[in-house]
Nucleic acid binder design. Structure first.
Length: 139
DNA sequence: ATTCTAACA
DNA sequence: TGTTAGGA
C-alpha cells in the first residue's frame, strides 16, 4: 500500500484528533468550515480524519499560536478540496514534488511558509514576520 | 457514550 | 472560542 493512500486514509474520530492536536472540537470544526482540513464522514455523519488531516491541524495550530489568523493560515496551507481527502489523491500542500503546475503560486506559497514556519524558530524574527506580513493576511 | 449542527447569556 | 440545546 502506498504511503500516499495511507496518509489520506480516513481513520480517527474527533476524540482521537483532539488528543493528538490539543485542539478543541470547536476549533477543529471551525477550521474545517474554512476548508483548512477536509475529514471524510462515516455513515452516521461522524468525521473521520486522515493522517494528513492531523498533520495539517498541527500546522494550523502552530501558525495560530504564532499569531497568524485564518486568512493567513489559508495562504500557507493551500485549501484542500473534499475529493482529495475523501479519496486517496495527493494533497498539493503536503509535498514539494509538485513542481508541474502553477510554479509561481507554489513558489510564493513556499516562501511564505518558510518564513512563517521557520523550523529553527529564531526569536526576534517572529515579531518582524508578524509585523511586515500581517497586512497581507488581514481581512 | 460520542459526535453533530446551530446559535448565543 | 466557549458553551449548550436538541438530535442522531
Amino acid at each position: 500500500m502506498s504511503d500516499l493512500i495511507r496518509k489520506n486514509m480516513a481513520l480517527f474520530p474527533m476524540s482521537i484528533v483532539m488528543n493528538l492536536t490539543n485542539l478543541t472540537a470547536r476549533q477543529i470544526r471551525y477550521y474545517e468550515q474554512h476548508e483548512l482540513v477536509c475529514p471524510s464522514r462515516s455513515e452516521g455523519n461522524k468525521r473521520l480524519f486522515s493522517f494528513n488531516d492531523v498533520t495539517r491541524l498541527l500546522q494550523i495550530k502552530d501558525l495560530i499560536e504564532k499569531g497568524v489568523n485564518i486568512a493567513g493560515v489559508k495562504q500557507v496551507l493551500l485549501p484542500v478540496s473534499k475529493a482529495q481527502t475523501a479519496r486517496n489523491e495527493p494533497l498539493l500542500a503536503d509535498n514539494d514534488k509538485v513542481t508541474a503546475k502553477a510554479p509561481t503560486d507554489l513558489q510564493i506559497h513556499k516562501m511564505l511558509k518558510a518564513r512563517l514556519v521557520g523550523e529553527t524558530g529564531r526569536r526576534g524574527e517572529v515579531s518582524l514576520i508578524q509585523g511586515d506580513l500581517a497586512r497581507f493576511f488581514r481581512k
